[in-house]
Each structure stands twice: as C-alpha cells, then as structure tokens.
Design a protein around this nucleic acid. Structure first.
Length: 553
RNA sequence: UGAGCUAUGGUGUAACGGUAGCACUACAGAUUUUGGUUCUGUCUGUCAAGGUUCGAAUCCUUGUAGCUCAACCA
C-alpha cells in the first residue's frame, strides 16, 4: 500500500494548518437546516465533514441550523439524524443553533455597544431599495446614526415583544458602498412572533444566518467550517463578525456542491415533485433523497464509495448517475443473495420428465464461498421468461428457439421441440425435452450450450410484486432546460409488475437483505411494512450486454 | 456591464515548474452454468492568444466561457 493517495484541496488546507501549528486538532460540523430531507448532495458534505475530521484525528458535530421557526420542524430533525447514522457516521456532539440564542443575543449587544450594529425602522422594501445594485453603491439608512443607548433600548424592546413582525430589524454597520452586497449593512435580527420547534414562544426575535452560523461555529470551536460555493460572499462577513465579537476564529472554506445527472437536487424542486404527485413521497425510491435511496436498496457503503470517487473541488459539475449505479452494483454483487424470479412467464413443459418434483441446489452467492446454498424445486412444468424464447431468432441469440438448446441454471439442459399456439397464433407454452445426464454439478452429457436461463417451477412458485424504477427525468440536466423542469419528468420511471413468479425460498425474504434476481437486477424488500404481500424494489439493473448488442441493430 | 469564483478526455478527479495519471463511460477481445462477475487491450484531454523559463496544465498578461451576489431564507 505504498501507493500515493492524492489529497483534495480541503485536506491540503488542513494538513497545512496542522503543519504550521495553527490548530492542534480539527473540528468540523455538519449544519443542516431541519426544513427538509437529506439528499445525495448532502451526502457529499457529510462524507467530507466527517471524513476529514476522522482522517486527521478530530471530530464532527451535528448542528441543526434552526433559526427560522416558520419552516423548521422536529420531524425533519429526526429524519436527518436517522440518515446520517444510516450513512455510517457518528457525531461527537449534537447541537442546535437555537441552544445558542441567548449567547447570540449577547453577541449582538456587544456589536451595538461597539457602534457596529443599529436598529433600523425601515421596511424590508426600503432596505432593499437602499441596498443599491451590484454596479451602484447603496445609501445609508436614515436610522444608521442612532445612538448606542437608543439602539440598546430598541433592541431590548424588540426582544421583549414590544413590536410587531417586520417593524424593525437589527443591522450590522459595515459598508453601504462595498462591492460585496452582503457587506452592505446586513440584517442580523428580525422580529418573528412565531412558535419555534424547540424554544417555543420564548423568543420573538430570531437571528439571521449570518448572525447565527459564524458565532455557532465559533462557540463550538469549529476549526474548518466547510460550506458550498454560494457562501463565498458571506465569508467576508463571517470574518468581520467573529473578529468583532472577539470569539474563537473559525474559518470558512467553500467547495462546489455536487450535481447528479437525470435528477434535480434543490429542496424546493424535490418538494414540488412530491406535492404535484410526480412521486409518492420524499422517500419514493426514485428520489435522490437518502431515504429514497435507502428504500430503493442502495447501501451506505456504495454511497460512501461514490462520494470518495467523485471527490471534492471548486468547479461546476454534473456527475454521471452511471457512476453511482456502478458503485451500487459493485457492492451489491459482493453481498446480494442470488434468486430466480420470472417477470413475464412462458410455460415450459418437459415432455420426457415423468418424475415428481425434485430439489436442486443453488449457491447463495458465487462471489462468497462461505455463503452456502439454497434448495430449488424442479419439475415437469416450469416458467421461463417470455423474452428468452424466439421463434425466428436473430444472429447471436443464445436463448431458446425451436430446435435450440439452453441450460436451465442449476438444473438441466433442455431442447425446444415445439411452440404450442392458441387459435390466434400466440404462443401459450413450449414443449421441450430435458437431458437427464446434464444435471448441474454432474453433467456427463458432453453438450455445450451458449445460453443459460433462469426459471421457476410452476407448482412451487410464489408470487411477488416487483417495482421497476427508471430515471426520474428524461434529460441529463432538467434544471438547465427550457421551461419548467417538471416538463422533463420521465412518466415511465415506475413500472409495477403485480405478480412475478419467484422461487419459494423468497417466501422468507427479509427486510434489508439484498437480492440479485438472476439476469434481472438487484432487488430489496420495500420498507413500508404495510403490505401483506411481498413487494420488491429494483435497486439497479444488471449490466446488459445483450440489450446493447440489440441496440446496435 | 460592478465584484467574486471556476476552467484538464464524454463524465468526475490528480499532477504543487520536470514523462498529463486514475476511476467511470465507450469500443475490442478472453473467461464464464447469470449476455452478470472477472481479466486483457484500445480511443479520447490541459478554454484561447501572447509572454517568462533549458523546461509551463502549473507562473505573468490579455481575452473567452460558465457560475455566484441586490431574501426580515439558509
């Protein structure tokens, strides 16, 4: 293992800081706002924050940025915690920005006392108008010159509930002519008579992101505060604030958020998909949410591997969802139990098979010698996949056709003698001959066949519902197309088969167990346990070289 | 068009002035009782133009393109 592993730019910064003795150990934090579900984009941030802290012997806090009571709920807190844990990460401390409200208030008072913050009576429209534009400087608010005493009194009164929502705000006094719009006297506190999910009705003023986030990092002595690129302009204010409240100097570093092809990532857009009924819920298996991917059967190992492979940098990106699927397949191939399930049945009658049903043996997982085996009943009547038979096969068709031979997996070689049809010419069943000497494991027939089919014995078959998922969108980057992103939803992204025929061992299918349905894909039991029947979600298909061959024409 | 950030194969990411590498994809082949897996090989790249240097993806200059910033959201 002498192979040199390259570092991403965050790791370089940290190693440098450690080498220069800037910090003895490092602290990071993952700071979700509890107003929605986590998605694969958050997974990168989680992987980064927890990953670097662990790598360099530090730790990571989970901190909920709950400064906006209007949108935040405890329900989200719980789902976020569950998702982070499921991904395999452990936080050192669990915090809420709302735990710091008293301290944040004191910090604000400190700013006022230094003449660095003032109460502004302007309306939000007036403040916006005075802000200027990126090309023109802003104008000072008429309230900018208030005395420290008056500001102190007014801010206290704001807290005491003397004013209605929107009547006044507390603003930082920085620079109305700054090129950086964030520095043009940003709002620090607003009045909101709203019930908070944790502090109840204790407060009627709430800090803005810029007042809450940097001091929260500082209180926790976070050394490396990692966020996405759109916060770059906030860094100047971040530093200004921590310097002026004279608190621990945390530092902010920005990385580019990851985008995934054939999906959307913003909470707003995901919410629309749920509300407008394009998907059934936040944890619909087609959603790029952590809970959706979990329900679909993706594994934490695969998701972590994916994050590792795409890495982190600062440029715009659109990661190919094919890489995620590769990571999922790679892991599932190692752990999934093999089973046989026929989706679209065609009956096969073995005309020379006269015995009773016999039990055959099939390995649980060929990739794992210790996985053991399962029993599979075999008999005179079987189901095979309708698409595995063709009357007039094209070249390179290795499956069944009149006069052709195939191996039935774990069983015998059969030859197709006749396709039986109804009066309309539809094939109703196949009459075949099996080769008794060709039994799997003790084949003395000397026959070599190209194709191997999966199958299920008719009398022992059980039925299961199978849900096949495809990409949620028809285009790579729906957010970048003309018009509404919802116009590009793939309306055929879910196909439900209500009664597939499965081998009987699947009767004992367990939640969280992964299965490979031979030649079909990876599947797992749906985690909504409200069903009295078996419902399997397709996690991802197998690679299909034959489909590719056919496409070539 | 003020300011900021970013530009390396189809995609993602390395190379820290010294042979442009890795992974995915694609393609070709071998193996295979899953047209899966595994294995082998092949194609494709430094945004542009100048400059500095023995030597530039890397440093400098000037362009070009994409993204971000004017919420009492985070």
């Amino acid at each position: 293992m002498s192979e040199e592993k390259s570092h991403n730019f965050i790791e370089e910064i940290i190693e440098n800081d450690l080498k220069e003795g800037k910090y003895k150990s490092i602290v990071t934090r993952f700071p979700p706002e509890p107003n929605g579900y986590l998605h694969i984009g958050h997974a990168t941030s989680i992987w980064l924050n927890f990953g670097v802290a662990k790598k360099y012997g530090g730790y990571t806090n989970l901190r909920f940025d709950d400064t906006n009571p209007a949108t935040e709920e405890t329900e989200y807190v719980e789902s976020i915690k569950e998702d982070v844990k499921w991904l395999g990460y452990e936080w050192k401390n669990e915090h809420f920005a709302s735990d710091y409200f008293e301290q944040l208030y004191e910090f604000a008072v400190r700013l006022i006392k230094k003449g660095l913050a003032y109460v502004d009576d302007s309306t939000s429209e007036e403040i916006a108008a005075m802000k200027g534009t990126p090309t023109e400087p802003g104008k000072d608010s008429p309230f900018r010159g208030r005395s420290i005493e008056e500001n102190l009194r007014l801010f206290e009164e704001m807290r005491a509930g003397k004013y209605p929502d929107g009547a006044r705000v507390l603003r930082a006094k920085v620079d109305m002519a700054s090129h950086n719009m964030i520095m043009r006297d940003p709002v620090l506190y607003r009045i909101k008579h709203a019930h908070h999910h944790r502090t109840g009705d204790q407060w009627c003023i709430y800090p803005m992101y810029d007042m809450a986030h940097p001091p929260s990092d500082s209180i926790e002595e976070v050394t490396h505060s990692l966020c996405t690129m759109e916060f770059i302009p906030h860094r100047e204010l971040y530093d200004w604030l921590l310097e002026n409240i004279e608190s621990f100097p945390s530092h902010q570093y920005e990385f580019a958020r990851r985008n995934l092809s054939y999906t959307v990532m913003s909470k707003r857009k995901l919410l629309q998909l749920v509300q407008d009924g394009y998907v059934e819920s936040w944890d619909d298996p087609r959603m790029p949410t952590i809970s959706g991917m979990r329900r679909r059967g993706y594994t934490p190992e695969a998701i972590r591997d994916f994050c590792e492979r795409i890495g982190v940098a600062k440029r715009d990106n659109l990661v190919d969802v094919g890489l995620l699927e590769f990571c999922v397949r790679e892991h599932l191939n190692k752990v999934a139990l093999r089973r046989m399930v026929v989706f679209d049945p065609l009956k096969v009658v073995l005309t020379n098979y006269t015995g009773a049903v016999e039990m055959l043996e099939g390995e649980e997982n060929p990739e794992d010698e210790n996985s053991g085996s399962r029993e599979i009943p075999f008999g005179r009547e079987l189901y095979i996949e309708r698409e595995d038979f063709m009357e007039n096969p094209p070249k390179k068709f290795f499956r069944l056709f009149p006069g052709g031979m195939v191996r039935l997996k774990h069983a015998y070689i059969i030859r197709c003698d006749e396709a039986v049809k109804d009066e309309n010419g539809n094939i109703t069943e196949l009459h075949c001959t099996y080769i008794p000497e060709s039994k799997s494991g003790s084949d003395t027939s000397g026959i070599n066949v190209k194709g191997t089919l999966h199958w299920v014995e008719v009398t022992n078959a059980i039925t299961a519902e199978v849900r096949l998922y495809d990409r949620l969108f028809k285009v790579e980057d729906p957010s970048n197309e003309e018009g509404d992103f919802k116009d590009y939803v793939n309306t055929e992204s879910l196909q439900t088969l209500s009664a597939a025929y499965a081998e009987p061992s699947l009767k004992n299918a367990r939640l969280n167990e992964r299965y490979q349905f031979l030649r079909k894909g990876y599947f797992t039991l749906d985690n909504k346990d409200t069903y009295s029947r078996l419902v399997f979600n397709r996690t991802v298909t197998l690679k299909d070289a034959w489909a590719k061959e056919q496409k070539k024409g």
